[in-house]
Design a protein around this nucleic acid. Structure first.
Lengths: 212, 212
DNA sequence: CGGATCATTTTTGCATTCAAAATGGTTCCA
DNA sequence: TGGAACCATTTTGAATGCAAAAATGATCCG
């Protein structure tokens, strides 16, 4: 198995998967489940530690990182800046096909909203934001965004939404699509910023924190 | 020696130091010079590869990354967004002591400009930008900024400046300090963005690229 | 003489090993 | 009985060993 594959599999285990924040990372077990030795696994652990997904305790192993309130605040602040930048860059660069893709995702998302299917809604939502970042056509930005998104995902896409916020979010997304179609970079950046800021407030209000 | 220390020593060797972009990274030699074995060195290499400073060629070792024109463009785009965000966040958060520090750096920078001492000028310049990021009090942002800055440093702080650009940069820095003092977040973000954009144009015009 | 081919050496990536540190459990004594 | 001290076990971090791949360079043939 290739190095990058180990990293992304481990990332998956930590973000989507079986190891909850704060839990000890069972080196031995993961080696067995990935069918590799400790050396490449430990290399991957160091990479994810640099990303902030893993904390290494000297001589005491590694644990899945827990998000503190401050982490959430910082991650949202940077996420705001990155998504706004992505929006601005995407406007002049996005292709018609990409626009169509986002419009379709948006339609699907509205459907899921109508059906009050939060999980599917969040999936569409996430895909839209990722599509905008992709449309910005900037690998560095995409890499940072992916790294932030991986850390913040639980806070961002799991926190339940109030009906009012949900309705507002839908409205904002209409605005996002509209600004993209009009290639209104400044407007899009502004909407994205507000969109994220509101989400952050909701998350903070929900008191999200995995530990200090 | 601790893991993080190996990473930062290696980063130093790659950015400030002896290994030019594109050059092969002599694993064996570095092990000897750091007095460690290959295992911890290779862990550090993977971390820096994830950061983009090192490219790993499967079965063919690692090399110091070269900046392509596209890399430079992308790095500047993200750097713009991050510095602007840092400025906005710094305005309400910066302490008087930090403001004084920046004012002093600025004064020193102007001195170096008068003396036409480009190297010292760049050093002050860099310290100012780093101080602003520090004043934003956001560890995630600071980490990303450091990572970007490490990669872009050669392009940003080595490209020679035209007399006109240099004079303009000094003026812009006055504006930066002024906006900080007035806590004008929006204004500061705007100036920082233009400042970086101009620098980027200069770098692009100088045709900076270490290879494709 | 130039270029292809194959043996030799070096390098790479990973598994294993080893010493040091932490953990857990048992014993011993107040 | 409670708790400190001690020892066995496990886990960690790093060095070493090993097989496979790549680089080197010596030889051979046109």
């Amino acid at each position: 198995m290739m190095h990058d594959e180990v990293v992304s599999r481990l990332r998956h285990v930590l973000t989507e998967g079986e190891i909850p924040p704060g839990a000890r990372i069972p080196e031995r077990e993961l080696c067995a489940s990935f069918a590799i030795s400790r050396t490449p696994l430990r290399e991957a652990l160091k990479v994810l530690a640099a990303e902030g997904l893993v904390v290494l305790l000297p001589n005491r192993g590694s644990r899945a990182a827990k998000l503190t309130r401050k982490d959430v605040k910082e991650l949202f602040e940077v996420c705001e800046a990155l998504e706004a930048a992505a929006g601005e860059l995407a406007c002049p660069r996005i292709s018609d096909a990409q626009l169509r893709e986002i419009a379709e995702l948006q339609a699907g998302m509205v459907e899921h909203y109508r059906a009050q299917d939060l999980l599917s809604y969040y999936r569409c939502n996430r895909l839209i934001h990722e599509a905008i970042v992709r449309a910005a056509d900037n690998a560095v930005l995409a890499g940072f965004y992916e790294s932030i998104a991986a850390r913040i995902r639980r806070a961002r896409f799991i926190t339940p939404m109030s009906p009012e916020h949900w309705a507002l979010a839908i409205q904002e997304h209409e605005g996002i699509l509209n600004a993209l179609q009009r290639r209104d970079a400044g407007g899009l950046a502004h909407i994205l910023r507000n969109h994220l800021r509101r989400k952050r407030e909701e998350v903070v209000r929900a008191g999200f924190a995995e530990g200090e």
